[in-house]
Amino acid sequence: MDTSTPAVFVNADVLKMYLGRRVRSVVQVMGSEGGTITGQSTDGHQLTIKGAQSFPLSHFIEVIGIADGNQSIRAEICTDFGENFDTQAYNGLCQLANGKYKNLFL
């Protein structure tokens, strides 16, 4: 069992706290160009995903990677979460997982 490299649930707001660390986030694809995806975070901000393969527009994707900027993630793994995803619930989870219940995750 290994818990040395967790991926923290983040939205755009929480991302800033984890610069250089491993994070996971869900964004809705708004555009992609040359391996860089522009997406909307679950709290409504624009995030840049580097090193990702392309995904259909308006799909939700989960990105696991390193937070390399206030609004940017260098992707290691991307998963297509499809067109139906409850961003509000996920955003709530990001807040809970970094707040009062952080000890269950990190």
Binding site: D2, F9, R24
Partner: peptide, 8 residues
């Protein structure tokens, strides 16, 4: 791998 760690 559930994001908090890995288990066999």
């Amino acid at each position: 791998d559930d994001g908090t760690g890995r288990i066999d």
